[in-house]
Amino acid sequence: MNTSPPRLTFYKGLLDGIPIALGYFSVSFGFGIQAAAGNLPSVTAALLSLTNVTSAGQLAGLKIILEHGPLIELIIAEFIINIRYALMSISLTQKLENTFKTPQRMLCAFAMTDEIFAVAASQKEHIRPKYFYGLMLLPIIGWVVGTFSGAVAGNILPASVQDAMGIALYAMFLAIILPPSTGNHPIAIAVIASALISVLIAYLPMLSFISTGFSIVISAIIASVLAALFFPVKDEIQEGEENA
């Protein structure tokens, strides 16, 4: 086994992107099925995935499109559901190599998804643009091809298979948050606190007026404020201090 720290090359990015791409294929397959069920043409569904590259946002958007809802509802829903990406983007700026100029940032921001962020953020070194290009390439392809395949062929799948595939996305989220929780107890506390608040909002009648999108934002903010107050982080990347 190679024990030296892996360099963050384009090729390493591609490799790290493979599991995300395969996961995205299965998840977006489900999205394609739903789009086709709403009589959205396959190419339109694929275009939706290519331009948005976001699971929860697309699902909410698809519902609004199929209902011919007002654009303002679409804008508010997308804003609330996707505001977590702003947090991830800000978080990742603290780990970028200084070769990340405005064009590189504008290009990479396009693919700031939960999984790509999580993989990039978990690297021990500073992130280079080439690594990020490699990391984002296959997941985007998987997301678009999966959507198209689901829209074209999804109706062949029995309902039991479609039902079971509904959990894929959430299982991936667990696969992202659980490993760091085992080695880092403050992360575990943030994860558990956020889940508890989310459950309280979902099931306490007095809080039932809060929508799912807001619930995610509120739970995450309270949990991370608590974790940040009680377990402030040390400087992980020391050399970053010199640029400050």
Binding site: Q94, D114, F117, F173, I176, A190, A220, V225, V233
Partner: peptide, 15 residues
């Protein structure tokens, strides 16, 4: 610290 914990908390609340 807030930015460090936030993504994990977001995914947890989504799940």
């Amino acid at each position: 610290s807030l930015l460090y914990y936030m993504p994990y908390a977001v995914l947890s609340a989504m799940t």
